Amino acid sequence: IEEVKKIVSEIQSKQLTRITINGNTYQVNSPEELVEYVRKVFS
Rank of each mutant, 00 (worst) to 15 (best):
V38M: 06
I7M: 07
K6P: 03
T17I: 10
S43H: 11
S30N: 11
K14G: 09
E2L: 10
T25Q: 06
V8A: 04
E36Y: 04
K6G: 06
V38Y: 01
R39L: 15
T17W: 05
Q12H: 10
I11N: 02
S30P: 05
V8S: 02
K5E: 15
K5R: 12
Q15M: 10
L34Q: 00
I19L: 07
E36M: 08
E33R: 03
N22S: 05
N29D: 12
P31F: 09
V41P: 00
Y37Q: 10
T20I: 10
V41C: 06
S13E: 13
Q15E: 05
I19R: 00
G23F: 05
S13A: 12
S9H: 13
V35H: 02
P31N: 02
I21M: 03
I19T: 01
L16H: 03
V38S: 00
E36A: 08
V28A: 15
S30Q: 02
N24P: 00
E3Y: 14
S9V: 10
V35K: 01
E3D: 12
Y26N: 01
R18L: 10
V41G: 03
Q12T: 11
E33Q: 11
G23N: 05
E33S: 03
S9L: 15
N24G: 03
E32T: 06
V41W: 12
T17R: 04
T20N: 06
Q27D: 08
I7Q: 02
N29S: 15
V28F: 15
F42L: 11
Q12L: 15
K5Q: 13
N22M: 11
V4T: 03
E33A: 08
N29M: 07
Y26H: 05
E3I: 14
V4K: 03
V41L: 15
V4W: 14
K14A: 06
F42G: 01
Q12I: 15
Y37K: 08
S9F: 13
Q27A: 12
S9T: 10
T25V: 11
N24V: 15
K14T: 06
E3M: 14
S9P: 00
R18E: 13
Y26Q: 02
T17E: 02
G23E: 02
K5W: 14
R39N: 08
Y37S: 05
S13I: 10
S13W: 07
R39T: 11
V41M: 14
V41A: 14
Q15T: 03
V35G: 01
E32P: 03
L16Y: 05
T17K: 07
R18N: 09
Y37P: 00
Y26D: 07
N24E: 10
Q15K: 13
S13T: 12
V38D: 01
Q12S: 07
G23D: 12
L34H: 00
E32N: 08
T20L: 05
S13P: 01
T25E: 09
Y37F: 14
T25S: 10
I21Y: 03
N24D: 07
N22F: 09
K40P: 01
N24C: 14
N29L: 13
I7S: 01
Q27C: 12
V35Q: 03
V41E: 08
N29T: 07
Y26M: 07
I19A: 02
Q12A: 07
I7G: 01
V35C: 02
I7K: 02
I19N: 00
Q27K: 10
P31S: 09
S30Y: 05
Q15C: 11
K40Y: 12
I1R: 09
E32G: 07
K6W: 13
V35P: 01
S43N: 11
V4Y: 14
K14C: 13
I21A: 00
I1D: 14
V38P: 00
S13G: 08
I1S: 12
I7L: 13
Q15L: 09
S43W: 10
G23K: 01
T25A: 05
E36S: 06
K40M: 11
I7V: 08
L16K: 07
V35E: 07
V8Q: 02
I11L: 03
V35A: 08
N24M: 13
Y37R: 08
K40C: 13
S30L: 06
K14L: 12
S43Y: 09
V4M: 14
S43L: 13
I21C: 12
I19D: 00
V41T: 06
P31M: 11
E33K: 05
E2N: 09
Q27L: 09
R39W: 15
F42C: 10
T17M: 06
E2W: 12
V8F: 07
F42R: 01
K6V: 10
Y37G: 01
E2H: 08
E2Q: 08
T20A: 07
Y37H: 11
E2T: 08
I11K: 02
Y37T: 13
Y37I: 15
I11C: 04
K40I: 10
F42M: 08
Q27R: 06
I11D: 02
V35M: 09
V8L: 13
T25R: 04
V8P: 01
K14H: 08
E2S: 09
N29V: 06
K5D: 15
K40A: 09
V4Q: 07
T25F: 09
Q12K: 11
R39M: 15
E33V: 03
N22H: 09
T20C: 11
E10R: 14
I21R: 01
I7D: 09
T25D: 06
R39C: 11
N29H: 07
K5M: 14
K6N: 08
S9G: 09
E10D: 08
Q27G: 04
S9R: 12
R39E: 09
S43C: 15
V4P: 04
G23I: 03
E36F: 09
Q12R: 15
S9N: 13
I1W: 14
P31W: 15
G23T: 02
E2V: 10
Q27E: 12
Q27T: 10
S43I: 09
K5T: 12
V35N: 01
K6R: 12
V38H: 01
I1V: 11
R18I: 14
R18G: 05
N24L: 15
T17V: 10
E32Q: 09
T20V: 10
E33G: 07
Q15R: 11
G23A: 02
Q15N: 09
